[in-house]
Design a binder for these strands. Sequence first.
DNA 1: CACCCGATTATCT
DNA 2: GATAATCGGGTGT
Length: 193
Amino acid sequence: MNYLTSSFYHQDAVIVAKELLGALLIHKIGDTVVAGYIVETEAYCSDDAACHAYKGRKTLRNATLFGPVAHAYVYVSYGIHFCINIVSRHPSIIAGGVLIRALQPVYGIEFMQKMRNTTQLKNLTSGPGKLTQALGITLQHNGTDLLNNSGLFLAQGIEIAESDIIASPRIGISQAKEHLWRFYVKGNPFVSK
DNA sequence: CACCCGATTATCT
DNA sequence: GATAATCGGGTGT
């Protein structure tokens, strides 16, 4: 198992978002390993009006985005879902992260089916709120160091060819829609929508 | 398949 | 009071 190392996260979030495609997001809960290949991401930068860090470090919620890279930024979406970002930014930038939007289930599929209350593979991890529920990721993981053997981490997975990466506008935002900072694996059935 | 809407809370106006 | 990096269930075509 090859873990992604610190230097990987010290790059522009847009680069990290692209390069995270194909990586394994892993959550170990006791003896259970729950994991999937990342097949859809979105980049958010501090000079980007759609980013939670855009207005500065004002509230407790977005503090993690300003903290060390390779930590998990988890927030509550629409009051009821959790979404996970990987804190990553170029050293010249004050804050930034990559939203994980979809996974292809690999390990712990039975666990995911219990958590999601469905056996339908396509519905387990095909969206940012779905995949956190499937992997058992909650607000308590906000600020978790992904390099520190915490049970939540990233590892090298499968290689995605450049020609199989599609860039498109980010989903669900009302500002800075012009940036093509959503990336997904062409033709992968687990991409959201 | 398309739209519409309710759930539920941190944050902003 | 409104909006938001969402989801699932409802209704209609």
